[in-house]
Write a protein that binds this DNA or RNA. Structure first.
Lengths: 252, 252
DNA sequence: CGAGCTCTTGACACCAATCAATCCGGGTGG
DNA sequence: CCACCCGGATTGATTGGTGTCAAGAGCTCG
């Protein structure tokens, strides 16, 4: 019988999921979907438990994994926030994404067998670490788990779409805020009151904008009554207005 | 004993892979990697054979699958060229990628269980169609196949990186040409003499540039002696020069 | 042979980057 | 406790790269 994994973080934000005696993973493991399928099979559950490892805390600026490290595991964010950053030979950095609790990072390392990017904590963060060889071998015996891994990978593919579009700076910014808000809401956080732990520089890099432009856009949105912003604390006031801005793209 | 699948296309470009009596799929199936692992297990090979279907020809402009269609299969390009295009509610189109023989499309439909984009043939094209439920259930019994599917998905994730960067129009264009050239070469085609079957508009949409800018960039590269270009026929003359341009990005 | 495209080339406008100055918050040390 | 410093954030002035508009050439297809 798998034991309860002790909680590291605030139980109100990250309660144990304990459905009778079926699912016994922390809610992050469950939300990430990696474990959820195992809840109905005791022996598989036990096997999964062995390969999950709770790691952290990582303080702001610390690396969870680095580019070129051999690919060994995927990580689900339990608490905090991370960015993934690719660095090309000339040393130029490109922020690939920001990840909130419940989301999974590291998947893009499967094919090259090395992580293609750095993962850097933006604030104090905790993770569930899943050894990939173990989980992938387990997946061959658990169709539901394999399915879930496919879904995670496919989902990640879809996430890059937002960034792909050629829109105005304002539209990209609005889309970014809406997207972040929705992802927070999906994980049980407030969808209107967000802590943006990343710097303006990071946001700009991610959205292909100068940090100054990010700043200007945020103040403009504040002046228009769409958001309230104080430092890195953001409140979304007019969500529909933001969505409307996000759709104000260039016609092609 | 699995029978030989009849060839639809030029055998010089797409020979059967026939290693004694082990691998017996068309080279596209093999190159795509979906089948390669089965070659060492006769019964699995037979199973795979059943779920592969050669479809085509699709003429330029015809859809292989459409956005919102239920996700049923993935497709490996056998011959020709395809683009994938997402369409947002307002009808704006965004070209997500171009695919050359041996590459696989449709993977991003796994999670939403519907294709998130249209796949449109850019010239007369043929495909290997793999029923996904069948291949994924087979994967639970074939660790190598599952591995390969993970790799394909992960690879696709990496491909979006090029487009992510915030570079000058020239750098993106150069990177695009180099990338296309390498992918052609990887599949056994010439890496210097490419047929660009997509329109300037498609290229522009993909690279987030106006079609006019694409045109201007190509003529400039021609004037600089980097490429020779006549309509949609492209010859790369100075590959190193192109690579150098591609790295001329904005410092961050 | 004309219709309707894609493609090219030019002139101009505009958005966002750059440069620069200032302000703010947090940490450090005297 | 305060002064100082430093990186991040804001705000302003200016520049330049690309988009847009427009006109014409070339191509394919019916």
């Amino acid at each position: 019988m798998p034991r309860k994994i002790p909680l590291i973080i605030d139980p109100r934000r990250d309660p144990m999921v304990d459905d009778g005696d079926r699912v016994r993973f922390c809610s992050t493991c469950a939300f990430s979907g990696v474990c959820i399928e195992a809840g109905y099979d005791k022996s598989a559950l036990a096997e999964l438990h062995v390969l999950v490892e709770h790691v952290g805390p990582f303080r702001a600026g610390e690396h969870v994994f680095r580019a070129h490290d051999p690919f060994k595991a995927i990580y689900a964010v339990r608490a905090g926030m991370v960015k993934t950053v690719s660095v090309d030979p000339d040393g130029k950095e490109q922020v690939l994404g920001f990840y909130v609790p419940g989301e999974v990072i590291g998947l893009s390392g499967i094919y090259p067998e090395h992580y293609p990017c750095n993962a850097v904590a933006l604030e104090t963060s905790h993770f569930c670490r899943f050894s990939f060889p173990a989980i992938s071998s387990l997946a061959t015996r658990m169709p539901g788990l394999q399915q879930q891994l496919f879904r995670l990978l496919s989902k990640e593919l879809g996430m890059t779409a937002m960034l792909a579009g050629d829109n105005t700076a304002e539209a990209r910014m609005a889309a970014f805020l809406v997207d972040l808000s929705e992802r927070f809401a999906q994980r049980g956080f407030s969808g209107t009151l967000l802590r943006m732990s990343m710097s303006r520089i990071d946001i700009g890099n991610y959205l292909r904008l100068a940090a100054e432009t990010v700043s200007r856009l945020l103040t403009r949105m504040r002046d228009q009554g769409l958001i309230r912003i104080e430092g890195r604390q953001l409140e979304i006031i007019d969500s529909d207005g933001l969505r409307k801005l996000a759709r104000n793209a260039i016609d092609r």
